[in-house]
């Protein structure tokens, strides 16, 4: 399997505090879903930032495949004074997505997430804001999708839609790295689960092909959440 991102003996600490992440060896493979579990404050978010390339390791090395594209959705998405389409258009232009393709993609995502509100994001509910957060992460169809507790505020239908989208992403060869506290949702897309405790990876759970194959069936996802 092709490793898109590799963390070798990675550590991260801020100022003189204790290490937030330490001695982490981890690889993110193409087409694989990696779930990261852990208690609050265990270092999940910092590990995601290291994987996404937002933060640099204090020790060790992070190797990335050439020309790798990453999508990232933080746990907390501070609303900006843009309409959702405007915001996505700005980010798409930064990514150099051609205008017709960008417009088509934004429309596709607006339909998928059923977000047709006209006002600025600052007027959105928590769930709607979270949808914009997820839309910006998947906008450019990245090779690696890094999501920090993405279900926060989403209703059951939207969770099911999002699970379908993740499975489709994996089928197209993208890697997904996600933190969360919903084992049911995790079963739908994750092939591997790692547990982080006090900044160290302690357990590694490899799922059988059965679980991943099951997840590829959208019926299964609908049943999981009891939605149509």
């Amino acid at each position: 399997m092709e490793a898109l991102i590799e963390l070798r003996n990675v550590g991260k600490w801020y100022a003189a505090g204790r290490p937030v992440v330490q001695q982490v060896d981890l690889a993110v493979y193409r087409g694989q879903g990696l779930a990261i579990r852990g208690r609050n404050g265990s270092g999940k978010t910092t590990l995601l930032k290291l994987i996404a390339g937002i933060t640099r390791p204090s020790a060790g090395a992070v190797r990335r495949a050439p020309e790798l594209t990453v999508g990232y959705a933080p746990e907390r998405f501070p609303p900006v004074r843009f309409r959702a389409e405007e915001y996505l258009a700005h980010l798409g232009r930064i990514r150099r997505i051609p205008k017709p393709e960008l417009e088509r993609r934004i429309q596709e995502l607006m339909d998928l997430f059923q977000l047709h509100a006209a006002g600025p994001i600052t007027h959105f509910s928590k769930g709607m804001t979270q949808k914009v957060n997820l839309m910006q992460a998947v906008l450019a169809r990245p090779d690696v999708l890094v999501l920090d507790e993405p279900l926060s505020g989403l209703d059951a239908d939207s969770q099911a839609d999002f699970a379908r989208l993740l499975v489709k992403f994996k089928q197209e060869g993208a890697a997904i790295v996600m933190t969360g506290h919903e084992p049911g949702f995790e079963n739908a897309w994750a092939d591997r689960t790692v547990v982080i405790r006090y900044g160290r990876l302690e357990e590694l759970q490899e799922r059988g092909a059965g679980a991943a194959a099951q997840a590829e069936t959208s019926d299964w996802i609908c049943n999981q959440w009891g939605v149509n």
Partner: peptide, 11 residues
């Protein structure tokens, strides 16, 4: 958080 998002989109 928006800085992190913009940095990821910038590459």
């Amino acid at each position: 958080a928006q800085e992190h998002i913009a940095a990821v989109h910038t590459g």
